[in-house]
C-alpha cells in the first residue's frame, strides 16, 4: 500500500432505519476508491446497505485527558434518569 494514500474512517449502515456506525478505516487515494476499499473490506458478508467514508484528518476528537471534566459531571445528576423517581406500585405505563 502506498503510504501517501490518506486514511479514511468507514461507517456502515447495517440496515435501513439504523444509523451508520463506525467500523474501522482504510487507506485510499480518494473518496471513490476509499468507498470501493471499504466495500471490499467491511461488507463481504452482508454487513450493511450503505457506506460512508470520511477523511480521518477531518475528524475532530475530544481530548482523552479531558474525559473526566467532560463526562463525569453527568454522574451526580441522577435526576435526569426516570429510575430516580419512585412511583407507586400501581402506576404502570409511565
Amino acid at each position: 500500500m502506498n503510504a501517501a494514500w490518506p486514511l479514511w474512517e468507514v461507517f456502515v449502515r447495517a440496515r435501513r432505519g439504523l444509523s451508520h456506525t463506525h467500523v474501522g478505516s482504510v487507506h485510499a487515494a480518494d473518496g471513490e476508491t476509499a468507498l470501493q476499499a471499504a466495500r471490499d473490506l467491511f461488507t463481504r458478508r452482508q454487513e450493511g446497505v450503505s457506506l460512508w467514508v470520511v477523511p480521518s484528518a477531518d475528524i475532530v476528537a475530544s481530548d482523552p485527558s479531558a474525559e473526566a471534566e467532560l463526562f463525569e459531571p453527568a454522574a451526580d445528576k441522577a435526576y435526569r434518569f426516570p429510575t430516580s423517581y419512585v412511583l407507586p406500585a400501581d402506576v404502570d405505563h409511565m
Binding site: F81, S84, L87, M94
Partner: peptide
Amino acid sequence: YGPYGRAMVRICKEESFHQRQGFQIML
C-alpha cells in the same frame, strides 16, 4: 423516515423522566 424515527428514539428515552418528575410533583 429513518432520521425522524431515530431522533424519536432518543427523545422518548428522555421524555420518560419528564413524565415521571411531573407525576411525582402531583403526587
